[in-house]
Every structure is written in structure tokens, then in C-alpha cells.
Nucleic acid binder design. Structure first.
Lengths: 132, 132
DNA sequence: TTGCTCCTCACGTCACGTGAGGTGGC
DNA sequence: TTGCTCCTCACGTCACGTGAGGTGGC
């Protein structure tokens, strides 16, 4: 969060863009929700990523989540995204592995074949619904 | 939550076991954190699963998360656990698929082989750290 | 100097836990 | 009847956002 080059917004601008009080941004930082880059002089600089994170924070607090809740939810969401992309990657690898065995491209049938051979169900990721 | 047979604790007992006020349990229910079984007469009955969920809720509120935050965190955690077990299952399937190709059991080298053939990294699940 | 930054302290509002008060069925 | 249940309403505390007040560097 807050790479030197991309951190371009001073706190008043970031606050205006996010629609919050500058002091609110300082509170968010103290509570560990966001960590803007600091210039050598000690002033905060917010990046575009920071602004997107602020938008998420706004959504959650508007929905009634307090700051400690927001902090944990952001962490869990990140972890969740990591796990999702990992599942996607492994699903692709399984398709490729099957193709090497059968000699033709993987389709829906591949999932079935792998399932049968492996004696296990391959769960449908589309079932997992994102939260909040 | 709250299967008929396993829901054995009346609210006063559940509250005592969870270390909270009975009225607090009613609040948790109104906020959608927990849903005990109801007898035909309309009284609440809590199961062992409910009590474990209450313990989680206690941990989170003690850490300063408010009830809307708890509600979402519990949902995200569940989803997270589902994703983790899905990754585990697919990892096992990949090992089995590789064994069929190479003719010998999968080990650390299998991960490497699959990675090379698939031109992608197989992320290490042990990297993903559980949250709060 | 002006307008920003930094910080801390104080107030108002709201969420939530506790408790009281009044009801009804085993 | 006693002790539980159900519900709603009220109060106290705390978190958080807003704002003021005083500082210092471009």
C-alpha cells in the first residue's frame, strides 16, 4: 500500500475523493485499515489503490460494520481472492493433465473423468458465493 | 443450525454455558448471528454447534468487532474453509493424475513436473495464513 | 503570509449489553 | 405457585466521526 511513485494524493484530496473528513482518514490509519505512503517530511500520500480500499471501507462502515470488523473483513477477503485464484489455477492444471492422458482438450467431461478416476467429487466453484 | 434432535439447551443454560446474558442471545438472533431451533411452543433450543458458534462470536466481540462485522466475518470464514478444503482436494487429484502419467507416487517433484508442463506455478497453500 | 500539514482533546450520536416490567405455558 | 419462557422499553457505556485548537514546513 502506498508505493512512492503512485502515491500522489495529499490527505485533503484523498478525503474529498473518498467523501470523508481528513481526520477520518487519520483514524483509519491509526486503526490499521490503511497505510498511505509518507513523504520524508512526514505527510501522507494516498495512491489509487488506497482510494479503492477507502471505497471498500466506506461500503462496509455504511453497512454498519465497525473499524475492527472492517480490518478483519478486508484481510479475509484478500485471503479469499487468493484461494479463488488458486482454485482456478489448479482447475486449469487438472484440465491440462487430463488432456495429456486422453489426448484431446478438456471440457466439462474432463471434470467428470478426473472425478471418477480420482474417486472424489470436484466441487463447483460457482457455488461459492462472495460475501457482503 | 439448530437441528431438532441436537438442540437441547434452553436459553438460560445456553447463556450460562456461553457466559452471556440470555437477553444477549436474543439480540444475537435478531441480528442474524445465530438461529436456534424453536419448539412448537416457540421457545429457543440451542445445539452444541450453536454453542461453538457462540464461542466464535464471543471471541470476535471481545476483540472489538460489532455484530454486523461478526455476521459477515462468520460468513467469510465459512467460505474460506470451503475453499481451503477444495484446494486440498484438487491438490490430491493433481497428485493422482501425475502418478498415472509417471507411474510412481507423487512427491515434491510432482509439483515441479506439473508446474513445468503446465507452464504455471502451483502455489503453496501453506503460505495462506488464517485470519483472526 | 496563506493554506496546507501534523498532532491531541472534546463533544454528539449510535450500537450493544444489561436490566426491568409485564405476559403466558409447563 | 414457582421458575422458566416470550416480548418491548430504558439506561449506561463505548466507538467513531466531526470539529476545534495549537504546531510546523513548503
Amino acid at each position: 500500500m502506498g508505493k512512492r511513485e503512485s502515491a500522489v494524493y495529499i490527505i485533503s484530496v484523498a478525503a474529498e475523493l473518498a467523501g470523508v473528513h481528513p481526520q477520518t482518514l487519520r483514524i483509519y490509519e491509526r486503526k490499521g485499515l490503511i497505510e498511505p505512503y509518507r513523504t520524508p517530511g512526514g505527510t501522507r500520500r494516498y495512491s489509487q489503490d488506497d482510494l479503492e480500499r477507502l471505497e471498500l471501507i466506506q461500503e462496509l462502515t455504511a453497512a454498519g460494520v465497525n473499524l475492527e470488523g472492517v480490518r478483519r473483513i478486508l484481510g479475509l477477503r484478500e485471503e479469499n481472492l487468493r484461494l479463488r485464484s488458486q482454485v482456478d489455477r489448479m482447475r486449469r492444471l487438472l484440465g491440462e493433465a487430463e488432456q495429456r492422458v486422453t489426448g484431446h482438450p478438456a471440457g466439462e467431461t474432463v471434470v467428470h473423468r478426473v472425478t471418477v478416476t480420482g474417486r472424489r467429487h470436484l466441487p463447483d466453484i460457482r457455488r461459492s458465493t462472495p460475501f457482503g
